[in-house]
C-alpha cells in the first residue's frame, strides 16, 4: 500500500519538483558564458530585474496573453457548438464523433502544422482555390500573420476545448431545458440562463486547457506566424539557445509558471465550490 502511494510521489518529485528546483536555482544565478553550464549560482536578482524593467519582455508577455486569449475565445466559439452537437447526438453515434475530434492526434503535431503552412502559403492550396474559383483575384497571404497563429492554435488545441465541454454538456439534464421552455423561456434565453451556467465548469476547464499551453506556445508562432509575432515562448528560446543565458531563460520560465498558477487556482476554487453545492 505504501509503495502504491510512494510511486506517484516519487514520480512527481523526480520529474516535476526536482526540475522545478533546478530552474528556480538557475534563475537566481549569474550568466557566465565561459562556464559549462554557463551559470554561476548565487542569489542574483539581475535576471528578474531585467525581465521587469525591459519593455521588450513586457511586450512579449502582453502579446502572448493577447494571442492566447483571442485563440482561446476562438476555440470556445468553435468548440462549444461541436461539443453541444456531440452531446445531443444519438448515444450510439457519440463515440464515433469523439473519435473524429481526437483523430488529428494520431498524426504528428509538427506534420499537421506543416500542412497548414501548405494550405496558407502565398501559392498554397487555399489561395490557389480562391484564384481558381474566381472569388478573389488577389488573395492576401494568411501565412506569416497573427491570423495564421490564431488559426493554428485554435486548430491544434480544439480537442482540448471540446472534450471538457462535452463532458459537462453530456451530464446536463435536458429536461431542465424543457422546464425552461415550459416556464416561458425562448431558446436563446433558455440557453443563456440554463445551458451556459451549467456548462461553466466545462467552459473554464476547456479555456484553461487551451489558454495555458497557448501562452507558452513556440512552434505554431514560429512556423505559421510572421516575424512580428512576439511571444514569450520564443523569447525564452532565444535567451536559452541564442544568448545562452540560462538564468534569464529560467527566470522567464518561473514567471510564466507563476502567471499560469493563478488561473489554475481560481479554477480549483470554482470546482471546489460547485462540488460543495451538489
Amino acid at each position: 500500500m505504501r509503495l502504491v502511494i510512494a510511486l506517484p510521489f516519487a514520480w512527481l518529485v523526480v520529474f516535476f519538483l526536482l526540475p522545478l528546483v533546478l530552474v528556480l536555482g538557475l534563475s537566481f544565478g549569474t550568466n557566465s558564458p565561459d562556464l559549462a553550464p554557463p551559470v554561476e549560482l548565487g542569489l542574483n536578482l539581475a535576471s528578474f530585474r531585467l525581465l521587469f524593467t525591459d519593455d521588450l519582455y513586457l511586450a512579449a508577455w502582453l502579446s502572448s496573453l493577447r494571442i492566447a486569449a483571442v485563440s482561446t475565445f476562438g476555440a470556445l466559439l468553435l468548440g462549444y457548438p461541436m461539443a453541444y452537437a456531440i452531446a445531443r447526438a444519438r448515444p450510439q453515434l457519440r463515440p464515433l464523433l469523439l473519435t473524429l475530434v481526437i483523430l488529428p492526434f494520431w498524426t504528428s503535431f509538427l506534420i499537421r502544422v506543416y500542412a497548414w503552412m501548405g494550405l496558407l502559403a502565398e501559392n498554397g492550396i487555399l489561395n490557389q482555390f480562391l484564384r481558381w474559383s474566381g472569388l478573389v483575384r488577389n488573395p492576401g497571404t494568411i501565412l506569416g500573420t497573427e491570423w495564421a497563429v490564431h488559426l493554428g492554435i485554435v486548430y491544434a488545441y480544439l480537442p482540448f476545448m471540446v472534450l471538457p465541454l462535452y463532458s459537462s454538456l453530456e451530464k446536463l439534464d435536458w429536461s431542465l431545458l424543457e422546464a425552461a421552455s415550459d416556464l416561458g423561456a425562448k431558446p436563446l434565453p433558455a440557453f443563456l440562463t440554463v445551458t451556459l451556467p451549467l456548462s461553466l465548469p466545462g467552459i473554464v476547464a476547456g479555456c484553461l486547457m487551451v489558454f495555458i499551453p497557448a501562452i507558452g506556445e513556440f512552434v505554431i508562432p514560429d512556423l505559421l506566424g510572421g516575424t512580428r509575432t512576439l511571444m514569450i515562448g520564443k523569447v525564452l528560446w532565444d535567451e536559452f539557445f541564442t544568448n545562452s543565458d540560462w538564468p534569464l531563460a529560467s527566470a522567464v520560465a518561473i514567471c510564466l509558471l507563476i502567471l499560469l498558477v493563478g488561473p489554475i487556482v481560481i479554477f480549483q476554487r470554482h470546482q471546489q465550490r460547485s462540488l460543495e453545492r451538489t
Binding site: 424543457e178 422546464a179 415550459d182 423561456a185 425562448k186
Partner: peptide
C-alpha cells in the same frame, strides 16, 4: 406552438429544478 408560448405549465416527474 412551442412550449414557451402556451398558457400551460408542467411539473416534471424528475422535478427538473435548476441546480444552479
Amino acid at each position: 406552438v412551442p412550449p414557451h408560448k402556451r398558457p400551460v405549465n408542467m411539473m416534471f416527474q424528475s422535478y427538473a429544478l435548476f441546480p444552479h
